[in-house]
């Protein structure tokens, strides 16, 4: 059960108030008629399914009824940021890679972290990065 910060309500609310709406930043092609069947099919049907950072659109359905975006880690389930419709994420795969590097450099052998299947809200970036490292 996620605890999600609504950027419009400006507070954390329970997941039950929200509906997930799939991958974020899928723009409708400006000129659909100029799209090939294949391009239109991609827009309609094909979505990413990454292990790691994922930008998702959610709706605060029982609340302010606004759509907004979440950057979520699909392994730890940590929500790294939420932002309004029309805004761009500040956390991306590059961000994670950077953190990973830092974490690897400072990592000692005694630290053991999850190999997967965990959720880690608020988990340290180092832990998250190591998760990412474990899959590489």
């Amino acid at each position: 059960m996620f605890h999600i910060y609504c950027p419009y309500c400006e507070e954390h609310r329970e997941e039950e108030e929200f509906h997930p709406k799939g991958q974020a930043h899928i723009a409708r092609p400006e000129d659909p008629d100029a799209c090939s069947d294949e391009a239109w099919g991609d827009y309609l049907f094909f979505r990413d399914n990454p292990r790691g950072i994922h930008h998702e659109m959610w709706l605060h359905a029982v609340g302010c009824r606004k759509f907004f975006n979440i950057t979520r880690h699909t392994v730890s389930y940590e929500i790294l940021e939420t932002y309004k419709m029309g805004e761009q994420p500040t956390v991306g795969a590059e961000h994670l890679a950077r953190e990973e590097k830092t974490a690897r450099e400072g990592k000692t052998d005694s630290v053991q972290v999850a190999e997967g299947g965990q959720q880690a809200v608020g988990a340290s970036d180092a832990a998250l990065a190591s998760v990412k490292g474990a899959q590489a």
Binding site: Q112, A114, G116, Q118, Q119
Partner: peptide
């Protein structure tokens, strides 16, 4: 603790 996915050491 294990339910959160964190592995024990």
């Amino acid at each position: 603790a294990s339910h959160t996915g964190a592995r024990p050491v």
